[in-house]
């Protein structure tokens, strides 16, 4: 549905995005994650035909972006950042205008239908200028859905919504995402984690990681942090643990509970388990902790920055870490 190859965009001297290559398949929800200024909006603007790339190729819904821009635009629904709408129009007027512009058949019915879908029907006659941020976001979403696009591109769709509205939008996106290709950007990682089939992390105009949220967590968290709990107060266990090889630090969280950081290398869990049991403590839990996407994100973007600072090149990803199972309860 979306095929991007070597996409580059320069604004004068500044390179906003640098040789992006990725794809999104039909029925997939792809999350585009990155800090502000990472190049998310630039990429989306290129994919929607708003501006051309400086270099590289892209095709959306089977049409080339450069040579068949009009065909692409017919098949893409777009919610820009900050949802620009005409404040002096009412919701229904605005949607009718956009539907006419997109030559939607049975315009009136479709506008009513879409207003039902995004739950704005009761405010149909309100002027856009009187709507809250959340309602405006929904009008923007309605506008993007009007022509039943094959590809939906949403720039920060959760921005400015309260938690209840966020849940609703997420539900809505899952519904439409089943049949359509959805690409959304966010800098809030929990949303991506919850919603997306695949996450592309972008920083400084480059892709730093791309995988399913679960695999990303597993891959990067692999062998980094363990939680250990034993019955009782675990007296003396701390010293025993610290004497073990392959552990970089051990910390007492509470009585009988430890947090262990492991160095990259072979799995140390069997060793820890036998130490605990062999020393006469009762093992309650030994669990590998999964990092949240948030931590991964911070880690990745920080590694990037450090790598840049050291003027190093090469893979920024923490590769070669044992994936293995995510958790092991004793």
């Amino acid at each position: 549905m979306i095929q991007v190859e070597g996409l580059t965009k320069r604004y004068g001297e500044r390179t906003a995005i640098n040789k992006l290559t990725f794809h999104a398949d039909k029925g997939e929800i792809v999350g585009f994650l990155g800090p502000n200024g990472a190049g998310k909006t630039t990429t989306m603007r290129i994919l929607t035909g708003y501006m051309p790339p400086s270099e590289g190729k892209a095709s959306v819904a089977g049409f080339d972006l450069l040579t068949q821009s009009l065909e692409v635009r017919k098949r893409v629904g777009y919610l820009p950042e900050n949802v620009p709408l005409y404040p002096e129009m009412s919701v229904v007027q605005y949607l009718d205008f956009m539907a006419e512009l997109r030559q939607v058949p049975n315009r009136n019915e479709r506008v009513d239908e879409v207003m039902e879908v995004v739950h704005i029907a009761d405010r149909a006659e309100s002027f856009v200028s009187n709507l809250s941020k959340g309602l405006r976001q929904r009008v923007g979403l309605a506008q993007a859905l009007l022509h039943k696009p094959e590809v939906l591109i949403l720039d920060e769709p959760m921005e400015g919504l309260d938690p209840q509205q966020q849940i609703e939008v997420k539900r809505l996106l899952r519904e439409v995402g089943a049949a359509q290709t959805v690409m959304l950007s966010t800098h809030i990682l929990a949303h991506a984690q919850e919603l997306c089939d695949r996450v592309i992390i972008i920083n400084g105009g480059q892709i730093v990681a791309e995988d399913t949220p679960d695999r990303l967590s597993a891959q990067i968290a692999g062998g980094r942090r363990l939680q250990l709990e034993v019955d009782g107060d675990g007296d003396g266990l701390l010293a025993e643990l610290r004497a073990l090889p392959g552990l970089s630090s051990v910390r007492v969280v509470a009585d009988g509970r430890f947090e262990i950081e492991t160095a990259p290398g072979p799995d140390v869990r069997p060793l820890i388990a036998s130490t605990v049991v062999g020393g006469g403590w009762k093992l309650l839990e030994l669990r590998r902790e999964r990092l949240s996407l948030e931590e991964i994100f911070i880690q990745l973007t920080r590694e990037e920055a450090e790598a840049a600072a050291a003027a190093e090149t090469g893979a920024p990803l923490a590769e070669g870490q044992a994936p293995g199972s995510d958790s092991a309860a004793g």
Partner: peptide, 12 residues
């Protein structure tokens, strides 16, 4: 207001 972005990403 940025509404141009929506017009130019519509088939116009």
């Amino acid at each position: 207001t940025g509404t141009l972005e929506l017009l130019l990403t519509a088939p116009v």
